[in-house]
Structure formats: structure tokens, C-alpha cells
Design a protein around this nucleic acid. Sequence first.
DNA 1: GCACCGATGTGCT
DNA 2: GCACATCGGTGCC
Length: 226
Amino acid sequence: MDLIARDFFDRPSEVVAPDLLGCVLEHETADGLVAVELTEVEAYAGETDPASHSYRGMTGRNAVMFGPPGYAYVYFTYGMHFCVNVVCMPAGIPRAVLLRAGRVIAGEPLARRRRVPRRPEESPEGRPAERPPAAIPARDLARGPARLCQALAIDRTQNGVDLCSAASELRLRPAGTSAGADADADRVIEAGPRVGVSAAADVPWRFWVAGDPTVSVYRPYKSRAR
DNA sequence: GCACCGATGTGCT
DNA sequence: GCACATCGGTGCC
């Protein structure tokens, strides 16, 4: 029913980001609906933020960030993962909020099916008793930006989708919409440095719900040098 | 829990 | 080439 109004996103990303905690991202596909209540986000700025994809101007990949607010910017990274952002500020000002983690509140069986990990090395033949894959704890289903995309089946085809339109397969609902909405009063928000970012590591633009088990574990940036 | 490491595509310093 | 807005496995404490 009610979706987040577009002008909610017509603000700086570091202002929008904490307000997104508790909001609900839902994706409806032919397989069904999966919805996630957001518990962790990160804000990115444009020309002033060396960690932002839009720091060096517009390219084919980041063009959506330069468009109007309320749209999904999905990118592919590390050769195998997708991450989803919400675009903020008017067209021409490239800002976004990365959706890092959430709690699955609808469609958990479907989310779980999508999160079956690839087995390390499928030996050709003759492994006696194949160990069944361990069950994923519910809190890990969307714990981390790439896991969140996997649980919701978000990939390149959702890049540029309008999150404020009821006609979209992918959309955002305001906080307190979910069944048994347990009051914003209980929600304590904490802030700290962003995850896995080498540049501007001191900017506290990561926001999360204090004490929530679905918040991803903090991994400081690690250099890949041998 | 922590550290290390490999997988893997894409857009550039 | 190389650096990534990452994850899952293994090994160890």
C-alpha cells in the first residue's frame, strides 16, 4: 500500500541513511515476495567522497546515481556479488545509500532457497556420503550487502528501478509498516566508519540498529598485498 | 570468535 | 595490471 514518498530521498544521503533503518525493502518476482526490514546502511557522497563510485564523474556503470532520487543503483563487484543503493538528492547530484543488511520479515523459505551456497569443489565422482549443506541461520539470510541482494534476487536487471512506485517489482515501505511494528521508540541507532572502504575511512557514515543480530560483522579494510 | 585466502568481472588510478 | 562499497571455507584459539 503506502510507499516512501520520493521527497524523502531528496536530501543528503547521510541524512536519509539513518531514517532508512526500519524501512522495508520488498521484491516481488514470479517466485513470490521477499521482504526485508533494513538494519544497516551506509551513506556515500559524490565529488567530495573518494570512496564513492561517483567521485570521478559519471560512467556507464554509475549513471543511475546521477539521476533523480528514489531509484535503485545496483552494481556488480568482486566478480560475483551485487550490491543495491538508493539514489538521493536531485538529478545531477550523485549521492546514494548502500543497503547493507536487513531482517527477513516475509518470504523466508524463498530467501533461504536463494541463499544455498555453491559447494567448494564438486569432486567428479565417488565421494561416499555427501554432507548436506548446513542450514543458514535466519539472521544470516540478508546479513551483508551481497547476501541481501541474493536473498531478494536483486541483480543488474533491477538497476534503475523506481523504488517509490507501486508498479515496480522492487519497492520501499516506510518504517513501522510491518506487522507487529515494534515502535521507533525502541530503535537505538549507532554510527561508525564504513566497511571495506580504503578511502575516507574516518567518516562515520555507516548506521545500524544497535544490538540487532542481523547487522553484519564489521570488517575493517584489508589490503590485498601479498 | 579471528586470520588468511581464493573466486571472479569490471572499471579504472 | 590492479584495486576493489564481498563472501564462504579452512585452520586455529
